[in-house]
Design a protein around this nucleic acid. Structure first.
Lengths: 143, 143
DNA sequence: TTGCGTGCAAAGGTTTTGCATGGCA
DNA sequence: TGCCATGCAAAACCTTTGCACGCAA
């Protein structure tokens, strides 16, 4: 299986640069598109999707899918962090739909526990915790 | 937070019965719809989606989402495995597709941590941990 | 010159929703 | 009687695709 050729274009660089600048956060394709449109460099929506897809294939960017009817989120993977290093976890609020970033020791510990006691290697890049975020819980309680 | 009422209808029973019969396998909403249509009981597509959604809310069925452009998959959770009292979590092996049920203290603690420190109430009925099970990891290591 | 990259608009496919009607309790 | 369930079709949504042109190598 031969890798497909790829050219180094201005758009590719700009997009990757933007993704890098968001280090530690995720973003949807639409948001990327909007951002690029608001700047001086206007990039078509299809191109955004195509470039993002390529970045995912190269492992430069992670893609999170939560629901079929919700836009996918993309996140830049810092150079050194490739593979197992500390990756972010995500929580998805079922009320407001927000995808929340998370990074904490307890999670790492729990992951280790899963591996040591249950022989299960959880993949944080695929796993999303569903539930209700604090803000929505507050509003909802007064329902 | 009050649970919403729900009636016991013929369609609900038939759908749940069908999901049960698929024990150990997942299926898409469309496939469920097609199956029901081929039988004598014709059930509307919207109803299939709505019932499946309710089953997910009750923890009777798990929902898997892979890609935004791919239909979601549903899988029945065997009775014995979803315990009423203690909450049950699920791990899904991405290699063999096996659904693993578990509940352990560490998990409960982690859930509590999420709530206390991140104000996030995780819903174990909707959350699925993706990863690789012990058996597959062993086989895979010789890759 | 070759073949990937790009833009636009249209297509594609799944899931949701509106609304009137039917059925459970 | 009061709600929930259902069906149908239309709507909504994100994402992909077709095609002609531009640009990297």
């Amino acid at each position: 299986m031969s890798e497909r050729q790829s050219y180094k274009t201005k758009h590719r660089e700009e997009l990757l640069e933007y993704m890098k600048s968001l280090r530690g956060t995720h973003i949807t394709a639409s948001e990327v598109y909007d951002h690029m449109a608001s700047g001086n460099a206007k990039i078509g929506k299809a191109t955004v999707y195509r470039q993002l897809e390529q970045m995912v294939e190269r492992g430069q960017v992670l893609k999170y899918v939560t629901d079929p009817n919700t836009p996918a989120c993309y996140e830049y993977v810092p150079e050194g962090d490739h593979c197992q290093e500390a990756v972010c976890f995500h929580c998805k609020c079922e009320v407001c739909g927000k995808l929340i970033h998370m990074h904490c020791e307890e999670l790492d510990e729990f992951q280790a526990h899963l591996y040591n006691h249950h022989q299960f290697s959880m993949d944080p890049r695929r796993t999303v915790f569903y539930g209700i975020c604090g803000a929505c819980a507050e509003k909802g309680s007064g329902r």
